[in-house]
Computed example of a mutant assay.
Amino acid sequence: MSDTLYINMNQCVEVTTDYVTIADVATLECKNKSVVNRLKPIKLLTDNSHGKNRYIVSIMKIFEIVDKEFQNVDVQSVGETDCVIEFKKANSDVKWLEFLKVAAICIILFFGAGFSIMSFNNDVSVGGMFEKVCKLLTGDKNTGKNLMELCYSLGMGVGILIFYNHFGPKKLSKDPTPIEVEMRKYEMDVNQTLITGHNRDDGKLDVK
């Protein structure tokens, strides 16, 4: 009686070592645990480019390994057919350097967002709009203008916090933030482009 091995391969993985194993790219499930334990540490490829190259591993490579290692194992793929592998160096232990990078990014984002908001307000003439509203309601274009500007500023700040679902290191809800959603979409698009380019023979990725 043969065992059934289920393989759920990821679309992309990042590893900090100079080699990648089956356990790094896929989740294995089988009633016969010896099959899973034997397959997990098997190396699929080794990186000799020091993290400069990306690689693509096909599910067929794992099928081939299973056929060589076992005689009576049926393989079922329930995940991706190709996996993009990127080798990266382990995170540096220099905490002050990481803090400096985060601080620099925050400063750039702060002034960039501030410039965008000021450009938008100047283009639509928010000040002139407030004057027209005050004149329409009170007959004086300056009466209540400062209060409207204060409420507008506070409302914009609160709206940004609610929209981005973040206040410092904490989330306001369990939902992913818009930035996280867009980053996942971008990551999926990049991976699909790499895989499609390889399948059309116009990519530059190495295949194992």
Rank of each mutant, 00 (worst) to 15 (best):
H50E: 07
V35F: 01
M60V: 13
N48V: 03
V66I: 12
V66S: 01
V35I: 12
F63W: 04
S49E: 09
K43H: 10
T46Y: 04
D47V: 08
V75I: 14
V57G: 04
S77H: 10
E69F: 02
D74I: 11
D74Y: 13
L39Q: 02
E64F: 10
V66Y: 01
I42D: 05
N72K: 10
L45M: 11
N53R: 07
V57S: 06
N32P: 07
H50I: 02
I65L: 14
N48Q: 05
T46Q: 10
E64R: 13
P41R: 07
K40H: 14
K43W: 05
L45N: 09
S49T: 11
D67C: 07
E69Q: 12
Q76V: 15
N32Q: 12
V57R: 04
I65Q: 03
P41H: 01
R38F: 06
D47P: 07
Q76L: 08
K40I: 14
I56W: 00
N53F: 11
L45Q: 03
I59A: 06
V36C: 10
V73M: 00
M60N: 14
V66E: 03
I62E: 02
K61Q: 12
K52S: 12
V36K: 13
M60C: 09
V75G: 06
T46M: 03
K61D: 15
S34D: 11
L44R: 05
L45V: 02
D47F: 01
K43C: 09
M60R: 11
L39C: 08
V36Y: 03
I56G: 00
G79Y: 08
I59E: 12
R54A: 02
K40N: 10
F63T: 07
S77Y: 07
F63P: 04
S49Y: 05
S34L: 09
K33Q: 14
I56V: 08
L45H: 00
Q76K: 15
Q71H: 13
V75P: 06
L44G: 03
I62G: 02
D47N: 01
I62A: 04
N48H: 14
I62T: 05
L45S: 05
K33V: 14
K31H: 15
L39G: 04
S49A: 03
V35Q: 01
S49D: 09
